[in-house]
Nucleic acid binder design. Structure first.
Length: 218
DNA sequence: CTCCCGATAT
DNA sequence: ATATCAGGAG
């Protein structure tokens, strides 16, 4: 209790207030990825790694007309799939991952996208972040918080965690966020991160959280 | 930790 | 010129 800190170390933003303000700012916050079934969402999220949703949607618009089932992804040579997803970036890795994922769906899950974290993470190209998006958006299972680059950055700036490892960030957020709000909260942070709390030049003067953000420069 | 891909913002 | 973009694998 004797420790006397400088004023530079401001308090973490209170989660309920953060959630309330962002909910008001972004009503109906949802993914901007275009999808119409779990397989499409899974593919879209795999493609979204280090890419923008605009580029991913440009790719999937035609991709999802050509590939409608796991079998369809395996019916072409890897090189053909690579060309079909090229603009999304990392096209060799992602084509290989999608075909490996499709193969495992057929061999281990009767061609269906599994509904558990354990099974999803066992799919090639699917990590915890991708699994949480699919669970939350396609199946309404909100067990986890999606920790992507935006959620990680905002959680740190808001003082909701001191960790940078995505899994530790999620562990710190879980007790703060009611289970039913976890998927929505992820979307809120992602949207706010894209539009206001940007990685390079955050628009603190336009931020509805600036008065309670430890990192605000306003 | 590096690599994977290339467009865009700063 | 360099950091960043709805990450994951080796």
């Amino acid at each position: 209790m004797t420790e006397r800190r400088e004023q530079t170390e401001r308090r973490a933003a209170p989660f309920p207030e953060v959630f309330a303000r962002l909910s008001a700012e972004y009503p109906g916050a949802d993914t901007e990825l275009r999808w119409s079934d779990p397989l499409e969402l899974l593919v879209a999220v795999i493609l979204s790694a280090q890419s923008t949703d605009v580029r991913v949607n440009a790719v999937t618009e035609s991709l999802f007309r050509k590939y409608r089932s796991p079998e369809d992804y395996l019916a072409v040579a890897q090189e053909e799939l690579e060309e079909d997803i090229r603009p999304a970036g990392f096209f060799r890795n992602k084509a290989k991952a999608i075909q490996g994922m499709a193969r495992r769906l057929i061999e281990a899950h009767d061609g269906e996208v599994p509904r558990s974290m354990e099974d999803l993470v066992a799919l090639p190209g699917v990590g915890r972040k991708t699994a949480n998006v699919v669970l939350g958006n396609a199946f309404g299972i909100n067990e986890g918080v999606v920790v992507d680059t935006h959620v990680k950055r905002l959680a740190n700036r808001l003082g909701l965690t001191e960790n940078t490892d995505p899994e530790k960030v999620e562990r710190d957020l879980l007790p703060l966020v009611p289970e039913n709000d976890r998927t929505v909260f992820s979307h809120l942070l992602i949207l706010h991160g894209r539009r206001v709390c940007k990685a390079r030049k955050p628009l603190c003067e336009a931020c509805v959280l600036s008065d309670l953000c430890p990192s605000s420069r306003v």
